[in-house]
Computed example of a mutant assay.
Amino acid sequence: MNRIRIGNNVRKLRFNHGEMTQEQLAEKVGVTRQTIVSIEKGKYYPSLELAFRLALAFEVPLEEVFFLEDSS
């Protein structure tokens, strides 16, 4: 069975929202800047609650922030 990989558009969305810094986003959703760095690099998958907080921060549906990567 293949491992499910989850991609994200956090970095792109930050830049589309007035070039928001990682620190600004972290403060907005209540985490550290390092957590945002790890999410952007795909090294950390956030909790469902944090995923929704990120989507709300960007005012987009959750599917625009996170997506399943093609495993083929």
Rank of each mutant, 00 (worst) to 15 (best):
V65E: 04
N8L: 05
Q24L: 10
I6Q: 02
S71Y: 05
V60P: 02
I39M: 12
E59V: 05
L62G: 01
F52W: 13
A57K: 08
N16T: 01
L50Q: 11
F52E: 13
E19Q: 13
T32I: 08
E49G: 05
E64C: 01
G30N: 10
I4M: 11
S38R: 15
M1H: 07
F66H: 07
R3V: 11
E63G: 02
Q24R: 14
I6V: 15
L56C: 04
Y44K: 12
T32D: 13
I4W: 01
E49I: 11
F52T: 11
L62R: 10
E69F: 00
I36L: 07
G42I: 06
G7M: 04
N16A: 08
K28T: 14
K28H: 07
E40M: 11
I39L: 07
Q22N: 03
L54K: 02
I36D: 03
Y44V: 02
N16Q: 15
N16P: 00
E63H: 10
E40Y: 09
A55V: 09
E40P: 09
V65G: 04
R53D: 13
M20C: 02
L13S: 07
Q24S: 14
P46E: 11
H17I: 02
N16L: 14
E49K: 13
N16E: 15
K12L: 14
A57W: 09
V37C: 05
E69I: 08
N16C: 03
I39K: 03
V31W: 06
V60F: 04
L68E: 11
L68I: 15
L54M: 15
L48Y: 15
V60S: 02
L13G: 04
S38V: 00
G7K: 05
K41H: 10
Q22G: 11
E49P: 00
E63F: 01
S38F: 08
R5M: 10
L50C: 06
D70H: 12
K41Y: 08
A26I: 07
P61E: 15
S47D: 09
K43P: 00
E23V: 12
V10Y: 03
V29Y: 02
L50F: 12
L25A: 05
A55L: 08
F15R: 14
F67V: 09
E59W: 01
V65A: 08
P46H: 12
E69H: 00
F67L: 08
L25W: 08
I6W: 06
V10F: 01
E64H: 12
N16I: 00
M20D: 02
E27M: 11
G42N: 07
S72K: 11
F52M: 13
S72F: 10
N8G: 04
K12R: 15
R14T: 06
G42A: 03
E27D: 15
V65H: 08
R11K: 15
V10T: 04
M1R: 06
V37G: 00
Q22L: 06
E23M: 12
T21C: 03
Q22M: 15
E27S: 12
E27R: 13
V37H: 12
A26R: 06
Q24A: 15
Q34C: 02
E49Q: 13
M1P: 04
L25M: 09
T21R: 09
N8R: 05
R5A: 10
N2D: 05
L13K: 05
V29A: 03
T35P: 01
V29G: 01
S47N: 07
E64S: 07
E59M: 07
E23F: 06
Y44C: 04
Q34D: 13
M20N: 01
G42C: 09
K12P: 00
R11P: 00
Q24T: 11
D70K: 15
